[in-house]
Every structure is written in C-alpha cells, then in structure tokens.
Design a protein around this nucleic acid. Structure first.
Lengths: 215, 215
DNA sequence: TTAAATTCTGGCCATGCGGCCAGAAGACAG
DNA sequence: CTGTCTTCTGGCCGCATGGCCAGAATTTAA
C-alpha cells in the first residue's frame, strides 16, 4: 500500500505527504502540550487533525517515529532561532544575556512546542526503562556554555568557578523560568529574564573588574 | 468486606493495616523511580510487594489516593529533614548554604523518593487535564526562601534583587543538581553543592560588604 | 472451640491503547 | 475513459490498565 523507501534510494516525498506530516506534527505538539504525555494518544492527535487514526500510521512508522520527528523539528527550530541572536557579543556576560533574551523571545511564540518537548523528555523511555532523552541530550548546550565561561575566565572577565555547574544551573534557571510562566501566564517574562541576566552576571564576573579601585 | 470509616469517627487502623500501607507506598516509590510514571501500574507495584493486586485496592481507595499518600509521605519526610538543619544560621548566606547542604544530604539517602516525587509532579493531572501538583505546590518553599532573602536585603547583607526570581532559581538549581546526579551517579554532589552555594553567594551579596575598602 | 472481623486471592470487566489491514476514495498520467 | 498509484477510512486485533467482587484464608475475640 505504501511506497516506503524506493529501490533507487530517492525519497520522492510528495507535496501532500510533507503537508500531512507537518500537520500531524503540529497537532501532536498541541496535544502533548495541552493534555500531557500520558493522555496523548494517536487517536486524540488524529481527532485534532480531523483525520482518521490510520493516516498517522500511514505517514509515520509508529508513535516512536512521530515523537522523534517532533523532537528533531523543535530542536532544530529553537537552535536556528537562538544562535544567530548570540553572535557579535564580545563579552561572555553579554553573550549570556543575549542568550537568555533570545530564549525568552522564543518562549513567547512557541509555548506549545517547548511544553511538548518537556513532556517528551520527561516521559519517553527506551524498552529497558531508561529515559530516551535524558540529561545527556543537553550535552551540546552544556558544552557550548561551558566553552563560553572558560573563555571568559581566561580573559579575566569572569571569576574562577566550575563551568559545568554554572552551565547546568543556567539551563535550569531558564527552564524553570519557562515553567513558572506557564503556571502564571501574567508573570513578567522580560523582567524575569533581566533578573536572571543580572543574577548570573553577579555570580560569574571577576571580583575586581578592571578600573575598580583595589586594595 | 471493608470496615471503612466507622460511625464513631474513629479510624482504628490496625497495626497490620499500617504496615501494609507503608509497604505498598515503599514499593510504589521504587516502581515510580525505576520504571517511570507511565510504566508503573498497580499490578507492577503489587508484584514488587509480593502481594495480589487486590490488596492495594483494599488498603487504598484507588490509584489516586495511593499517589496522594506518597506525596504526603515524602513531602513530610524531606521537610522534617531539611528544616532543622537550617536553624541557628545567623546570615541569609549561611542559611542558604545550610539549606543546599541539607538537601544534598537528603538526596543521597532518598534518591528513589525524590525521583518518584518528580515523576508524580510531572505527570499526574486532574480530570480536566491540568497538572495536579503544579508549580503552585512549591509556593511554601518559594515563600520561605523569599522571606530569607528579604531579611538579608533589609539587613544590608544582600544586594537588591527580585526575591521571587531568586527563590525560584535556587530551587531550579537544586532540582537540576539532583537530575544531573541521577544521570551521572559518579558526579561529585558535595562539590556541586559547594559550587551552588558560592554561586548564589556571589549572586546575592551586597556589592560592598562591610569592612571592604570602597571608593 | 466457635463465631466474627479482617485481610487476601484470583479472576472478571469495560475501557483505551498502538498497530495493522482490506478495501474505498481520490489524484493523475496515458 | 481507463488503469495505476497515492491517500484515506473504518474497523479489527491483542494487550495492558484500574476497578471491582465473591469467596477463601487468616487473625482476633468471645
């Protein structure tokens, strides 16, 4: 019934195929965000999309592949959004502030995507019971931030601290800011982001910045 | 079959009743921690406890009540552990450091309890689809920490910042330290805790501590 | 010892799940 | 118009779930 992978190695996904996949992914994101992981079944996703359950099975190999596609999609999206907004910052402090602001800007426009990603990260497990997308999935983010902090330390801009702990903590602070905003939608995200930037500026900068009277 | 609530208002839970309930809660905690929320069924809990599935139904009104009891139990446990270890600290900075250390000490001995609590918080929903134990459940913690920071600010020990954002961020940092340790069991928890204490000391203390030469 | 209360077993039930498929319906090229 | 390829429908399957219960086993009380 389904062409699947062709012998010539080409994918040849039709326009309609791509459109359907995109639509299903979108509806699945909404469902995960709104209902939570446990209450999101293929039937509910199909219902939201106004299609039969079998259509999902037709376009995706299974629930697992659908979830993988969601993670891929959102991850690519957020990376492409945030990275360019950090370029051109000379100082580590400036780059971190730009980073936080960019993520906040993304949050506003993509609440459901981030919620869905969270549901998936927290719940999907491999057959042996371990998390499919564990902390290890954050490694690229941690390493990038670590590198940022290390350079700031070498240049004397930042004080001495464990860059890994700082990187992990920054990510936790951002994630919790998001969760707090989801719980309290009237919460002032911009103010929170500025507070976080100040917080980590104080936490990371060298004790005696150049130009300050010392002992 | 079951006495339920007696007309005289007394509970009269027998010794065996209490023991069974405790055993079931313990096994449920292990199951949630090890298998995750979605894979933890009453059958699996019963299997771990070496009893029939019906026993759980006999001692608890349903899965919902069992989960409530777990949350109650663990929450009470951690509070009773941490609070006494924060008393007698004169400064806000000292109290925060003691707080972080106490939580870390608790983590070491109660990994499964905290994991189970996390699974429950992240997944249990009310019938209308909203989180049963949302961010609002952390309010007592947030408010206590807020109060701590406010006093530190009034005494001049701490700089001016938003106490709520700082309280939320501290909690996030602690939670993520736990998650990181779960993912990497060889991770040095003590060092991480000290780093966190240093981090927030720098983030919160007043710019010019008394006794330092200023301009 | 006997009767009553408590605790437990094993199995049944309706529900919802993901996967699957036969065939209908639609799109499209010859 | 005709035949082929793509897409979709609706329903079926085996399975796991939480809840429930009749009756057995055990403990406790008289």
């Amino acid at each position: 019934m389904r062409p699947e992978d062709r012998s010539d190695g080409q994918k040849r996904t039709s326009f309609i195929e791509e459109a359907r996949r995109a639509q299903i992914i979108e509806c699945a994101v909404e469902a995960f965000a709104e209902l939570g992981y446990a209450n999101t079944s293929l039937a509910r996703i199909a219902e939201r999309a106004g299609i039969s359950k079998g259509v999902i099975s037709y376009h995706f190999a299974g629930k697992t592949e659908l979830i993988e596609q969601i993670v891929d999609h959102v991850y690519r999206d957020i990376t492409q959004f945030v990275l360019p907004r950090m370029e051109g910052e000379a100082t580590a402090t400036g780059a971190l502030r730009a980073n936080i602001r960019a993520v906040v800007e993304y949050m506003r426009g993509h609440r459901d995507q981030l919620l869905a990603l969270g549901e998936i990260f927290n719940n999907v497990r491999t057959s042996d019971g371990r998390r499919r997308y564990g902390v290890a999935f954050n490694e690229p983010i941690y390493e990038a931030r670590e590198e940022l902090f290390r350079r700031g330390q070498q240049s004397g801009e930042l004080r001495s601290f464990d860059p890994r702990v700082m990187a992990v903590t920054v990510q936790a602070a951002i994630d919790e800011m998001f969760a707090y905003w989801v719980a309290y939608p009237d919460h002032d995200l911009t103010a929170h982001a500025d507070e976080l930037a100040d917080l980590f500026e104080h936490a990371t900068r060298a004790e005696r910045p150049r130009g300050t009277a010392g002992r």
